[in-house]
Design a protein around this nucleic acid. Structure first.
Length: 574
RNA sequence: CGGGGCGUAGCGCAGCCUGGUAGCGCAUCUGCUUUGGGAGCAGAGGGCCGGAGGUUCGAAUCCUCUCGCCCCGACCA
């Protein structure tokens, strides 16, 4: 490909809308342009990257025994009503009505469609297992799209669905996908971690997220260096707190005046007590009829994780209650809630249980209670659970070593669905005994554009992108520094054609531009290898190969250049 | 949805407070020179100032409404 013919408008300055690195560089390197919030056009260079990623995905999915299909993006509401998600999915589901008044949605995922497809054509255990996947545009009407294609509303996703006759088969399908995913992200040149995850709206029994480690990630994970345990904080398991051998004796509860001091830090300062002696009480809305409000407790220096809390309560989501509800539930303004004497249900974090002579709110304005002892003073029926946010240094649930926290970008997510959809949508088969059974399902997603963005987050410098070889739009860019110098141009063209004939996907920068412009654009768009052809080099029979990622420069005989490029391409392709 | 910010040429911005009919840099086009890290000179084109009302002799500027975008939060395969 010749640069002069390529639709590749690079930007010298960053458009003001971009905040994160990958978004900035995707715009500047001419990969994408925005059409509306969370909706992007992909330009030629971007398409080349996406196709590379898609092809790696295809190869590994096919190798794992999955078959590619292509499902509709517009899906009838009936299927979604059958699964029960028409109402459950909420505003994120983009609903449309056709000219006859029939309701449809733009597919955010395809469990319903695939289950419908399979139930109609699969009847026997002999047809199982089956794993079908597609690479399709999805639409999710996110509340707040952001960070370019990282959290877009319209995006390309590979989604796979497995159907098995029994648990062992489903387990095997899950393992095969996990292995395929590891191969895919490894080949894409990403540093990632497969972590235990929450199942969210998709449902099902268990799941792993594939997290690309990057500071700009929206998810937080806890991980153990020693044994390799890693989990999304939403799914983190924390061991019980150490028990003191000789705890001080419990003292009688006593009210203290704490005028205007709602925050734990203020009260701690005032009472000269450590925040670890405090029990923080937060009131949450659950959306449940039987217990709309719940008090969640954690130690003063800890934070409640809303997702862990929701799971402990058994509700879809837990969010902080409005001020009026807090007043109603506790009889005090926000900041003075405490478990003793509270009428609403109490869920307390395990780490609260053996705090001795703790400080907590008195359910009375400007008042706290000291010497609270949970076992003695908490209401009857208090539930204990693991509901707090992990902290740096928390101990590993598997091996008890200290864990760390890291930010990650979720590029893939795999779920064991069980029979959630096959039962609600009646996808059954006859087993060897002639008995009718629901298929056991799994589902497996990869965000294609997000994988590209994650690759940039992990591989860039101040000058631009440094594409991993396997997903680079071009593997090498040939830079004749002066196209009017026919000796230089002849050498550049011959190297270019040679590379092209060898299938090494070269780009020839044949623009009549100064050397600096070409260097800067080559760095920006992140082609892994630059072949620099200049006057001085040509006179000595040499060309120069620059490795974008390391900055390393090699002087090479012109005749050997294509072979050296081929070598380097091979070396850098995992 | 709550909070904050921003819409002026393709991109980045100034002008707005204190109304007088739009400007800078980059990019683009033409010509000449230049060609190893975003060139120089000369010339040229491009904006009903997001939109709609209003105030005024006069609105990019003041007021009201509206649309869009970005950030934080809530939310989220």
């Amino acid at each position: 490909m010749k640069f002069s013919k390529l639709f590749l408008p690079t930007l010298k300055e960053t458009p003001s809308e971009a905040e994160v690195i990958s978004h900035k560089y995707m715009l500047r390197a001419g990969l994408i342009r925005k059409l509306a919030a969370g909706i992007y056009s992909v330009m030629p260079l971007g398409v080349r990257v996406l196709r590379k990623i898609e092809n790696i995905i295809r190869q590994e999915m096919n190798r794992a025994g999955a078959q590619e299909v292509f499902l509709p993006s517009i899906q009838p509401s009936e299927l979604w009503r059958e699964s029960g998600r028409w109402d459950f999915y909420g505003k994120e589901l983009l609903r449309v009505t056709d000219r006859h008044g029939r309701e449809f949605c733009y597919g955010p995922t395809a469990e319903e469609v695939i289950t419908d497809l399979v139930r109609n054509d699969v009847r026997s255990y002999r047809d199982l297992p089956l794993n079908l996947y597609q690479i399709q545009t999805k639409f999710r009407d996110e509340i707040r799209p952001r960070f370019g294609v990282m959290r877009g509303r319209e995006f390309s996703m590979k989604d796979a669905y497995s159907f098995d006759a029994d648990e062992e088969g489903a387990e095997e399908s899950y393992r095969a996908m996990k292995k395929a995913y590891e191969a895919i992200f490894l080949r894409c040149g990403l540093r990632f971690s497969a972590v235990e995850a929450d199942t969210g709206q998709i449902g099902g029994s268990s799941s792993h997220e594939f997290m690309v480690l990057a500071d700009s990630g929206e998810d937080t994970i806890v991980h153990c260096q020693k044994c390799g345990y890693a989990a999304n904080v939403e799914r983190s398991r924390l061991p019980l707190p150490p028990v003191s051998a000789a705890p001080p004796p419990p003292a009688p509860m006593e009210e203290v005046a704490t005028p205007g001091m709602g925050a734990v830090e203020d009260v701690a300062e005032f009472l000269k007590r450590d925040t670890t002696d405090f029990i923080k009480t937060l009131i949450f809305k659950t959306g449940l009829k039987e217990r709309p409000l719940v008090a969640a407790l954690c130690r003063g220096d800890h934070e409640i994780n809303h997702v862990k809390l929701a799971r402990a309560i058994g509700c879809a989501e837990a969010s902080l209650a409005e001020e009026a509800d807090v007043v109603k539930a506790t009889g005090a303004p926000v900041g003075f809630a405490g478990a003793p004497g509270l009428a609403i249900p109490v869920v307390a974090d395990n780490w609260v249980r053996n705090i001795v002579n703790a400080v907590t709110g008195a359910n009375k304005a400007d008042t706290h209670i000291v010497n609270v002892n949970p076992e003695r003073d908490f209401p009857e029926g208090t539930e204990w659970a693991d509901i707090r946010q992990p902290q740096e240094g928390d101990l590993c649930p598997e091996c008890a070593a200290a864990m760390g926290l890291a930010k990650g970008i979720e590029v893939g997510h795999i779920f064991k669905l069980g029979t959630k959809y096959s039962e609600s949508m009646n996808a059954t088969f006859l087993d060897a005994e002639g008995e009718k059974k629901p298929m056991i399902m799994g589902c497996f997603g990869i965000g294609v554009g997000r994988t590209a963005a994650a690759a940039i987050e992990q591989n860039h410098d101040d000058d631009g992108i440094m594409w991993p070889m396997a997903i680079a739009p071009f593997k090498a860019i040939v830079l004749p520094l002066n196209i009017k110098d026919s000796a230089v141009m002849d050498v550049a063209e011959s190297i270019y054609h040679n590379l092209d004939d060898s299938g090494l996907e070269p780009l020839l920068d044949d623009r009549n531009a100064r050397a600096g412009v070409k260097f800067n654009d080559a760095d920006l768009i992140g082609i892994p290898l630059q072949v620099i052809v200049g006057k001085k080099g040509v006179e000595q029979g040499k060309a120069e190969i620059k490795i974008r990622a390391t900055g390393e420069k090699l002087m090479v005989d012109i005749a050997e250049t294509p072979a050296r490029v081929a070598e380097l391409v091979k070396k850098f392709t995992p």
